[in-house]
Design a protein around this nucleic acid. Structure first.
Lengths: 128, 128
DNA sequence: TCATTTGTTCAGGATTAATGAACTATTGAA
DNA sequence: TTCAATAGTTCATTAATCCTGAACAAATGA
């Protein structure tokens, strides 16, 4: 089994970060890992936002997060433990990750309150 | 010719913003528009970062920026004038656009100095 | 040794992106 | 009015990417 590739922090690009987080599942995973004190394994995310994700898809999502420099993954026996690279990223792109996570929180709150008040969801551009 | 669609600011999503700016050409266009005092038409970008862009491709890029809530486009006679929606976006997602533009600036500076010192570009994950 | 758990890789079908060619709309000049 | 030039859009085709079931690999523990 191939070793897990992690880019050097100076090779991490803005485009790569934005691409990795432009998927609702991946940004939810990233936000969740960033919010935890402990590390998390991949299978913690077989359901994300009440939606089932096939494990092959999940594996690809983690690969994308990893290879774009957002998370660090280490094999520990049979599982893979994931942590964010927040501190390195903060050094390279100050304020970026915080602003994205904050925006994600704002949006989640809005979605939640919209659901509570039973308004129909606004139509919006979807990509897939 | 169809009218230009702009989403209401509350329908703009984080994912949409990140997706729109995850393309090097689009983020360069957005950064350029954001940096200008005056409005810009689409054809100002037939070459972006020393790279020629077909106008049909450019038209799609502008559509993506527009429909994800990043820019406002208005027809004026034969041309379309574009401005950012920075202020609305700042209200909805405080600090987000500033952080992204700042990260883009940091990265551009690094790319520029790397070119000057003639170091070979680091290999990085590409998407296309 | 063998079943279980955790995750990866591969192959395919589905989706999305890029772009040349044809088109629309506006402007200004003859 | 007519015609050419300018600025973008739309469409069709090809290329690239994404999603996921199936098969596989590695570690663990019974």
């Amino acid at each position: 089994m191939r070793p897990l590739f992690h880019p050097a922090i100076e090779d991490v690009t803005v485009e790569g970060i934005l691409y990795a987080l432009s998927d609702p599942v991946r940004v939810a995973i990233y936000a969740d890992i960033a919010g935890q004190r402990c590390t998390m394994n991949c299978s913690s995310f077989l359901t994300v936002s009440e939606q089932a994700i096939p494990k092959s898809t999940l594996s690809q999502h983690f690969k994308i997060l990893r290879e774009n420099g957002l998370i660090r993954s280490e094999r520990h026996g049979v599982e893979v433990r994931n942590t964010t690279r927040c501190q390195e990223l903060e050094q390279r792109f100050p304020g970026l990750m915080r602003a994205i996570l904050n925006a994600h929180t704002i949006q989640s709150r809005q979605a939640h309150s919209a659901k509570q008040t039973a308004r129909p969801a606004a139509k919006r551009a979807s990509r897939r």
